[in-house]
Amino acid sequence: MQKAMGPNTGTTFYVTLPIAPLSLHDEIIETKNSEISDLTESLRLSGLRILVAEDERDARDFIKLFLESNGARVNVVKNGLLAWKELNDMPEAFDLLLSDIGMPEMDGLGLITKIRSSENPEVANLNAVALTAYAYTSDRVKALKAGFNNYVSKPVDGEELLTILEMYLPETSL
């Protein structure tokens, strides 16, 4: 009997993975659980209200989960237009904007330009951090000149992001 070959005929892979002895496995789990407890006890962003503008769903969901697990209250939107609408509808609701630069409909540079030229001082003076894959020095300079207060490049280092965002904690949270 001859097997069919070519596109759409399928492939089978076999993988053998070693498993740690049970006692070592339990030690690893205990260590991980204590590390998680340590993290949840230090809610570094407690009290910080953040609006996140990010067009990629996975990144948006991850950032929201990461920030909330560190104590922040987070609203997420998928582009600059929706962020602009949120800020104009509820300017008092946010302490900080965390925005991707490259987004459809209105990118982060367009958003920060609108924010900085707003007639509403709560909107115009909102702290804003660019979060972007554009990692060249010229990109950083462009974002800062456009009006972002700070800049974090992707892939994001969690400790770096937390350290930067802590700078924008409301006075009452310190």
Rank of each mutant, 00 (worst) to 15 (best):
N79M: 04
L109Q: 06
A124P: 00
E122D: 14
G71D: 00
L165F: 09
D61W: 08
P91A: 06
L45P: 04
K145A: 12
L82K: 14
I101F: 10
G110I: 05
V76F: 00
G108T: 10
L82W: 05
Y134V: 06
T163Q: 10
M103A: 06
R140Q: 10
N75D: 15
I112Y: 12
K142V: 00
K85A: 12
M167R: 15
R60V: 01
E159N: 15
S46H: 09
V129D: 10
I115C: 08
A72W: 02
G71P: 00
T137I: 08
P91I: 06
G158W: 05
E54G: 07
T132Q: 04
D55Q: 05
M167S: 14
G110T: 05
D61S: 12
E122K: 15
R60C: 12
D55R: 04
E41N: 13
N120T: 13
K85Q: 11
E41I: 01
L96K: 08
G102F: 06
L67D: 04
F94E: 08
G108V: 11
S153K: 13
M167H: 13
L109V: 11
F62D: 13
L51V: 03
F94D: 09
K145T: 12
K142N: 05
T113W: 08
D139K: 01
A146H: 03
S99D: 11
D139I: 00
N125H: 13
A143H: 04
L81P: 01
L67E: 00
D100T: 09
A59T: 11
V156F: 14
Y134N: 05
D107N: 15
E105V: 14
E105F: 14
N79R: 07
I112L: 05
G108D: 10
E92S: 15
F66R: 11
D107L: 08
F62T: 13
G108A: 10
M106I: 04
N79I: 03
P170W: 08
L67V: 02
D61P: 03
T137A: 11
E92N: 12
R60I: 00
N75P: 00
V156L: 15
K154P: 09
G102R: 15
K145R: 13
N125Y: 02
N125G: 13
K142L: 03
Y136T: 05
K114D: 10
K64C: 08
K85L: 09
G110A: 11
S117M: 12
K142Q: 07
L51E: 01
L82Q: 14
R57K: 13
M103D: 08
I101V: 14
L109H: 06
M167P: 05
N70S: 11
M167E: 15
I101Q: 09
L169D: 04
T163N: 13
F94Y: 15
D139Y: 02
N127L: 07
S138N: 02
G158I: 06
L45Q: 05
N70K: 09
R49P: 02
K154M: 07
A53F: 01
L65P: 03
D89E: 14
L162F: 09
E86H: 12
G108K: 11
K78R: 12
R57L: 10
T163F: 09
M103H: 06
A135W: 01
A143W: 02
L144S: 01
D95G: 14
E56C: 06
I101E: 12
V141M: 04
L111T: 08
E54K: 03
R73Q: 15
